[in-house]
Structures are given as structure tokens and as C-alpha cells.
Design a protein around this nucleic acid. Sequence first.
DNA 1: CGCAATCTTGACGATAGTCAAAGGACGTGG
DNA 2: CCACGTCCTTTGACTATCGTCAAGATTGCG
Lengths: 239, 239
Amino acid sequence: MLTKNFLRCRRRNELSGEEKQALEDAVSQLRPYGARSVIARENVALHESNLLVEGMVGRYMTARNGEQQLVAVHVVGDFLDLHGFPLKQLDHNVVAITPVKLAMVPHGNLLKLTSTHPHLMRLLWFSTLLDAAIHREWIFKLGRLDAIGRVAHFFCEMNVRLKIVGLSDGLSFDLPMTQSDLADACGLTSVHVNRVLRQLREGKLLTFTKSHAVILDLAGLSRTGEFDPTYLYLDKGTL
Amino acid sequence: MLTKNFLRCRRRNELSGEEKQALEDAVSQLRPYGARSVIARENVALHESNLLVEGMVGRYMTARNGEQQLVAVHVVGDFLDLHGFPLKQLDHNVVAITPVKLAMVPHGNLLKLTSTHPHLMRLLWFSTLLDAAIHREWIFKLGRLDAIGRVAHFFCEMNVRLKIVGLSDGLSFDLPMTQSDLADACGLTSVHVNRVLRQLREGKLLTFTKSHAVILDLAGLSRTGEFDPTYLYLDKGTL
DNA sequence: CGCAATCTTGACGATAGTCAAAGGACGTGG
DNA sequence: CCACGTCCTTTGACTATCGTCAAGATTGCG
């Protein structure tokens, strides 16, 4: 079941069996991508969207001086580039962070679903708005938190998002990102991320070594990152 | 025609006359709000969405220390809280910046449209993804531009968005925001916004006094803000 | 084993925040 | 019509956070 993690634990995961099947049927093939390979390039016409079945994906924008900003991270169960269905093309690059597997859904099949399954379409719409809600939270994070807050917030968010798809036990998880990737996500330099990670370690809030995060004090980390998972629209009782 | 500015000049403004009428018919009433009044509060169930017919609106998130972050600004023609239709409730506050007029569309009417007008629904979906694209650009702006770049970018964006609905002549426009509002939009303090505005003035790029912006050097301002309007998905030939 | 990428640390500098004070702009009410 | 208060803007002096540059340590991979 390629779609089993789609909207998992979300407040509106009310797909009927028939809808799940319709979505599953819309998948044309399963495609692998290597780590750091480009899945979708900006300003290129798109003809399919992809459900992320395995691995981790990032959306990047690039500044004139070459600095990158990660504008979104996707985990298993996220529907990538669903934005590309109404938008037809994207304003940024989508890159595999790890080796990934994608369930490809041609836009033609999605188009059919809009007429035959309006409720399913609203759920697909909902999933893109979840992305938008996460974007807003990141705007807040970058605009109003200091370096340690931003990094703490990022780890809190990843912890929750990975937990609902079974990839975090609630306090520890694998995160296949370098300190430089973290810097791109948090609007910092890798040097400063390194200093912040030391602070978090010394403050007994979090350790992050060898792509593995261990949260030592979830309440403290959440407080530092001003993290409140409401914006993730989780099912009641998920956490 | 309350909906005349909806998706105006956007790459996918392909509403048929019948669709425009259907949207117009979905409006139940026109409502005024006073400046700084709250249109939608976070975590409260929503039962209608609103098309912004007059005025300017902001979406705010608040940090623990009381600092505010503006996560989005809406101008005439934007469909407010369409996010609230699939999401059912919002994760932030929506506040009138000026006195505004809203065309209220009950969710029940939108729901009917999903079955009867799938193409119109895709356009509504599209408009929410436009918001998401703007969010991503703001993430980039906050994560990777310095203070002067952020402010320059903001003015460039507002210039374009106001121009397509006839509220900027391409180089000057009214912007009913204080320097403190600008600070909330750009992740800065109002003191520093003031210094940046002086820099822009002295650099002959932009003046902003008494809620009126005049762009003296559009190319220079765009360069400073690393602004490229692609992410606004404009119709070819709009600018 | 050796190279390349990543991590770590220190010294220094620049950008933006903080604190404080004073000067406009504007509206209200006497 | 002026006085007053409030909000907004402007500026300066000082501080703190984060970036830059550089070098060395560690890790992982071929």
C-alpha cells in the first residue's frame, strides 16, 4: 500500500477504502532517485506529482551569492509537488536528500479524480495547505526566533512529523542531514549551527551526532523552539 | 462584480463567464471591518471564507516575548481564509490592516461548488497555492537576505501585487503600514527598518513617507531585494 | 591507506538589536 | 484654535548575536 502514510494521523484523514483505492490506482509507477538528485527543477512544466514512499526530500531556493535556503522538507507520506498540479510548474528546485522512492501520479489521473472524487480532491487540497501551514511556521521561526530557537524548533517539528509515520519513537530519530543542511533550513551558517548544537548538548536538551537525533528534554526543547504542534493539524490524541 | 479582481493577471485566470457567476452567487453578503479588527482568530472553527474586496489584511503569529511576525499580507482580489475551507480552522490570526470590505462565502456554498464546478475548484486550489508560493519566497527572504534586501524585496512584491489589481502605477503606491508593521513583515525591529529606509532613500532606490511608497530605481531595488516575480505566477506580458 | 567531506574551535568583524530620548504628525476635546 | 496626548519616526550610543576566515580534527568511503 504505497499510500498508507498519506495524511496519517492528520485531523482530516477520513479517506474511505474506495478513495484509498482510487488514489492507489492513480499511481502509474514507483521510481527511485539517488541522494542529492534533482526531482523537479524550477520553471519546468510538470506532468506528474509524487507521493514520497521512502527517504527524505528538500525544496531549495538559491540566493545570488550561492547560499541555499531550504524552504521545505518532506518525509515519508508527504505528497510532493501536488502544488505542481494546479500550478503547472514550480518556483524552486526539489531535491532528494537521501535515496528516495516516489510513487508517481500523472496529472491526467489527478484530473480525472477531481470530477469523480471531489471529497478525495479536498483531502489532496488539504494536504497542500498543510504544507502552507508549515511554511507559515517557518516564516515565524526565521523572522522571530534566534539561532538556538530555530534549530530547536526544527528538531521538534521533525520529531513530530517523523513520529506520525513511525520513523521517530518520540524522543530519537534518524535525520540524514549535515550541519550545513540544518543551516540551510534555519537561515544560519554551518559554523553557527555547530555552536548551537553544542549549546543544546551542554544544556541537556538534544544531541545530534552521525545523523541521529536524541531529544534529552522534550519540554525544554519545545520551550526553546517555542514549538506548538497545532499547525501540523494532527488527529486528537496522536501525541 | 465583487470577484473581478480574483486571480486577475494570474497565469491561470481562465474563469468562464459561468464560473465567475457561480462564484459571485456563492457570496452571501458583503461585510465591513474596522482597521486592526480581527477577522479570524486562531484555533476557532471557521464556517466561511472571504474575498477581499477593499483594504489590506495581515496574518500574524506571536512569539512568547510578544513580538509579532506577519506571515502574509493580502491585497484586493485575494481570497482570504480559503485555507480555512479544507483546514476548518487556522493556526494564526487574520487582522484587518486598514478598514476592509469582505465578500463572505459560506463553506456550504464552496462545498457545493466542489461537485458542480471542479474546474473552478482547481482555480480556488490554485489561488491557495499562490499563497504558499509567496510563503516560500518569504522563507527565502527571511533566511537568506540581509535587512536592506528584505525590505527591498517586500516593496518589490507589494508593487507587483498592487499593480495587477490597479493599486500601483508600477513605481508608486499607497501602503498603509507603519515602520513597525514593516518590521513585523521582515523579521526586524522598527528601529532597524528606519535605518534601512534611510539607506534606501540615500541610495536613491525608494522613498516611503506617510504610507506612500515611491520607487526611484526599480532595477536597483529588485537587485537589492533579489526579486524575481516568477513566484507570483503572473500572466505573460503583465509587467 | 588516503582523499574528501564534515565537524569543531578560535579570533575577529559586521550586522542588527537594545535602550533612550527627542521631534513630528494627527486627532480630540476644551 | 490651541493644548494635549498618543502614536510614529528619527537618531545616537552601546551591546550582542551571528557571520567570516582560517586551521586542525574527525569521519567515511573508495
